[in-house]
Amino acid sequence: MSVDTATVAKIASLARIKVSEAEIEAMVPELNGILAWVEQLGEVDTSQVEPMTAVIPNTLRLRDDVIDADPLTGGNKRDAVLANAPAAEHGFFGVPKVIE
């Protein structure tokens, strides 16, 4: 499988990265080089193999349902949450107006 300029433009749009025509042109051969190289995986017979789900055998722990049990993972910290916001007003994050 290889990509063309239209595909690269579509991927960039999905990834929300603005790219110029020239950048797209440059990326096409680069991405195709990488894709052609990773496609050698197709050689491997994996018909009897389950995809890896956990690199080290381990199962998911369940947390107790307690509010703010650990201040590091709890709420009630609006100032900390908004501290680095490019636009914070009246306790909200501001973004360009969205029309739904």
């Binding site: 499988m1 990509v3 595909t7 690269v8 991927i11 960039a12 999905l14 990834a15 990265i17 990326m27 680069e30 991405l31 990488i34 894709l35 990773v38 995986l41 197709g42 491997v44 994996t46 193999v49 389950e50 995809p51 890896m52 789900t53």
Partner: peptide, 27 residues
């Protein structure tokens, strides 16, 4: 570059050929 590669290999129609296969080879 890596975001674009990653976006592509997860995108509709390519997921199994790339990502699932990679997780199998990883196994």
């Amino acid at each position: 570059r890596r975001i674009l590669i990653g976006t592509y290999v997860l995108s509709a129609g390519f997921y199994d050929a790339y990502y699932t296969q990679a997780q199998k080879v990883r196994a």
